[in-house]
């Protein structure tokens, strides 16, 4: 399965800008083809692509449009059409009704905690399996595969019972542990596939200079992995930030609720749901994530593509 376009890169594939080839290659073709008029098939595929793009993106635009409308405008309007009014009151009400600030802090704590665990544990595990190597490493590899296949629901009841026993219910840790545990296999596999690219000669040279496994890990593997760490953190933090099921199960008190749980409170909080304020709240919670994603999407795309194609 050496079919990924990034495979052609000679060295450890950098996470950023990992895929230059497609656009480059096609660009030179553009100029040759530009002068000819479009074939009907091309027109059809463009229209289709555009229509599907509307389906994917318009609901999100709609959130934004609704968030800046006043109530009357929202009620009187159909699906399309630009807002007739512009107001930021909805945002004020959103902050009044909910506890968005605290929710965001909680989400940050959980996301940072779990990401740190995933990166540290993922790197250590991948280093032990891929670089150090040991008898039975294939068994350990297969064991981690279980975590990718098995659905998270299986852990809910046992963890709830265990947490109740040791007093972990209703803590940040109760969310961090399972989120990190279930994301660990994927990041471990990503780190392993990256470690393959670090040439054996580097390790040999370091060993001759007298460096032990720990020193090599700290001085060679770790500094070389920065791009992969960014990829792993990007992919996982989106899933962790958006987690609903663990938080909903293990956290009961308002002070610990993360963003998704806080958003849930908007449904019918005042008897009748205040939709424009709710959409303002959705907007506030979604925008930072979207911005981070738009800025760093290359790192993430690289992880998704190589993760799946290298299996």
């Amino acid at each position: 399965m050496t079919s990924s376009p990034t495979d052609t890169l000679p060295k450890p594939a950098p996470a950023h800008g990992g895929q230059v080839p497609p656009s480059r290659r096609s660009q030179s073709r553009v100029h040759a083809r530009r002068r000819r008029p479009l074939k009907p098939a091309q027109v059809v595929s463009r229209v289709l692509l555009g229509a599907l793009l509307v389906v994917q993106v318009y609901p999100l635009v709609w959130i934004l449009l609704t968030a800046v409308r006043d109530d009357a405008d929202f009620a009187s309007h159909g699906a399309f059409g630009l807002p007739q009014s512009f107001t930021l009151d909805n945002f004020a009400r959103a902050f009044e009704q909910g506890d968005l600030g605290r929710n965001i802090v909680n989400s940050l704590v959980v996301t940072l905690g779990a990401s740190a665990l995933i990166v540290v544990c993922g790197m250590m595990g991948a280093y032990a399996i891929q670089v150090l190597g040991f008898r039975g490493s294939r068994v350990v590899r297969a064991l981690f595969l279980v975590g990718i296949i098995v659905p998270v629901q299986v852990a809910l009841v046992p963890l709830f019972v265990d947490y109740a026993k040791v007093g972990l219910l209703d803590t940040h840790l109760s969310m961090i542990i399972p989120l990190a545990g279930f994301s660990l296999p994927m990041s471990l596999y990503l780190f392993m596939s990256f470690f393959q690219y670090i040439p054996q000669e580097i390790y040999d040279a370091a060993s001759i200079d007298g460096a032990g496994p720990t020193a090599i890990f700290a001085r060679i593997t770790l500094p070389m992995s920065v791009n992969t760490i960014v990829t792993v953190v990007m992919i996982n933090s989106i899933f962790i930030w958006n987690d609903f099921v663990f938080g909903n199960t293990f956290v009961l008190s308002e002070e610990l609720k993360t963003v998704p749980l806080g958003l849930q409170n908007y449904i019918g909080a005042m008897g009748k749901t205040d939709w424009t304020a709710t959409f303002a709240a959705v907007c506030v919670t979604v925008t930072p994530l979207l911005l981070v994603f738009l800025v760093l999407n290359r790192a993430m795309m690289y992880g998704l593509e190589s993760g799946a194609t290298k299996g």
Binding site: G125, Y127, V140, V146, V150, V154, G181, F217
Partner: peptide, 18 residues
Amino acid sequence: GFLLPPLLLFGGAVLLPI
């Protein structure tokens, strides 16, 4: 030493609950 932390996390959060 390198294998223990990931196995503990994974074992505690995923394997044991199963």
